[in-house]
Design a protein around this nucleic acid. Sequence first.
DNA 1: GTAGTACTGCGTCAACAATA
DNA 2: TATTGTTGACGCAGTACTAC
Length: 163
Amino acid sequence: MSLGKAPKLEYPEPYFQQHDSCVSYGDQMSNSPQGSSGSIGHIDNNLNADFGPETINPGDLADEVAKKRANRLHKNRVAARECRRKKKEYIKCLENRVQILEAQNKSLIEELSKLKEQYQNQHSHSGVTQPQPPVHAANLSGQFQQFTVFAVQSILSVFPVEC
DNA sequence: GTAGTACTGCGTCAACAATA
DNA sequence: TATTGTTGACGCAGTACTAC
């Protein structure tokens, strides 16, 4: 799914003429008990009554074109609603993922800190004079770095976070 | 109570992608 | 190639909140 579509800002004259239907639809919604954020089902019933597919009079071409347009608008209206629902769901999923990853990051930092401490204790008790372990993970000894990578992979396998 | 503002959801248009 | 599905952009209406 690409989100980088170039905006287009020009609207032909018919757009503004068609906008009257939008206003009347808004009025319908304001009559509903819950206003614009009311139940979708209630709205859809009205829409089906106003714009839904109907039987086509075969003799009237203009009428058929109008019907096709109404049908297209109806489908697009439903599609837009579904598209927004999916988008909200996706954003919610991303937000959850951020929370999970932040928690993982925190626990990994804590784990790393503990492992560093263990590493330091082991080498200080061995009696061998060793240089102080480096602070940054990038400078850790190869063995310890391998262990760290293993630990991270293990934790990530326990918390699958996909949207 | 009222005006102003921010936020939200909706319908529509238009452009693009996928499909028949 | 025509049709259909998807989605960003736009403008509108309703609601909630705040300052006055």
